[in-house]
Design a binder for these strands. Sequence first.
DNA 1: TATCAGCCG
DNA 2: GGCGGCTGATA
Length: 635
Amino acid sequence: MSTFTGLANPWKGKGKANGLESDFDDLTPAITYRHLHAQHFGPKDPLRAIALCDSDAFYATCEQVRLKVDPAVPLVVRQWDSLIAVNYPARKFGISRMDRWDDALKKCPELKIVHVATYKEGDDEPGYWEKPDTRTHKVSLDHYRRESAKIYNMFKEGLPGTEIEKASIDEAFIDFTRPVREKLLERFPYLAKVPDDAPDGLDSTLPPPPPISWDGLGTLIPLHPARDNDDAEVELLEDDLLTTWSDVALSIAAEMMGRVRADIHAKLGYTLSAGLARNKFLAKLSASYRKPNDQSILRNLAIPGYLRPMPFQKIRFLGGKLGKALAEEYDVKTVGDLLSITLEEMQRKFGEESIWVYEILRGIDRTDVKEKSATTKSMAASKNLTQPVAKASEGSHWIRILAAELALRLNEARDQTPGLWPKSIVLGLRQGWQIYRSKQAPFPFSRTVTIDLIAAAGDKLWKELIGFDDSRPLPMKITHVGLSFTGIASNESGQQNIEGFFKDSDVSVKAEDRGTKRKLHSIVEEKHASEEITECQPSRSAIATHFDCGRCGRRIHISDDLAGIGIEDYIKQQALAALRTEHEDFHLALDLSKLPEDGVNAAKFRPDPPQKKFKKPKSKPEPKPDGIAKFLVKK
DNA sequence: TATCAGCCG
DNA sequence: GGCGGCTGATA
């Protein structure tokens, strides 16, 4: 709605420039003792210091490091016929990511070309092949994810007290506010206490800051970009006069940032570029000021000069449709061009949320750096098919390939965060341009995630969408197959029946307990199951030596030699927990063993009829014993 | 739950 | 500009 209610509008009158910085009126806030001593740092904290740190030509550097190639050698990463990464030496030859690999080679005959890792059906892990075939192989970015994790871990270890948000495979935001504050008080102890003669107590402004030596801390984004080098000295002088405690905060953050970057370079071989500023968006924008292997610092007073001439479509989230719409609506391209648009007008045209854009254009970004917990994440593997699937029975082939990747990645994620579990698995199929079919199903808990387990679940979905009947025509031409996990979370919350399982029995299991765990395996009796859909519930007793399975109704006991007195409680607990998981795995395998063999007896396997809202329980045939074995034993 | 739309590098 | 990947909105 566009009617103005008459309430005081905080934005009124800020639209039009009437003086140099009137669009940027928060660059030199008064900084008080209260700010310095605050325990919680809000988004408007004048001492906030944020960095965006990204890895230079990441995939290319990964290969350069892996192959121990001289970093000065021009190197590109190839994917099929195109390039997905170009290192800086190669860029000097005018090679860009858009080039085909053979064109790149023409530009630089010495170019080192590395094809991204791929794998085909049957491979347990991706490898680097001379000539991968797009018809049989799928690319894997796994190596890059692992290297990314190494860098992330070095951030975490090297920057205690910071908040770190991994923004993508090669980027992380780092909030230095807390450690910077500690360092400030350590370095300037006189700030610790409000002076007795301070006029407003805690709300008194801090004494003027000392001059800052920026030597070795990175590249300062200039206060006046248009000036030429002759004015450098003038600017330096000016800098000192205009220095604020915000700048001091940035300088300390830059110190820390520079140290980890050097450390990562020394230990892992990656060069990183960083931007430091008062918020995420400005940090991101500053990081690209000078690359590679440098860090740029954007002081508050440099914000207008840096932002005004910036094409706004370079700004995160304005690179797409919204940016284009803005550009077309007002026929402009820089941030400065947009500053004359009032908030009301923007909101009228682009909705309430465009206050976000309005603020971004003025260098304001209230978003927080938040460590992305493993939760609410998804994991996808997909493949475009140059030759569409011709027969229904070919589905398993691709599903297996994608399952291998998901298995690898989920297990790896579990090394870092034990207990991770995806709520559901999704199979997505695409035909040509747009038409999409997808099907998802809950992905039941299992201690061990194998390729077979995922492939079986994927096959089941495929069966429901397509069937495995080669004698019937395919319902559509399938040119894209994707398999993904969604709702990946650590199981510590929510799932009562397996809560604490990893803590009790898996992660913290000590070496000497593993023998005990082994033994448990043989104790599980696998007889038959009914069709109850309830889950296995623990029975409630002090130190239980058994549990009752809600699914099959059976009572499962730990072995007598473990159940007796004289065996420590925690051993019993572990034994029982392990037993329960074994049993759940057993049900799981049972469920999945009702799947078809690839292509065999295909005619029997039609797509399932459309799902009814309420499934009527019906008894299924007894699964064959070796159907279980297939999923438990095979690797 | 299925689909779509958008963004990123 | 294709490919692979991720997230959030919507009904």
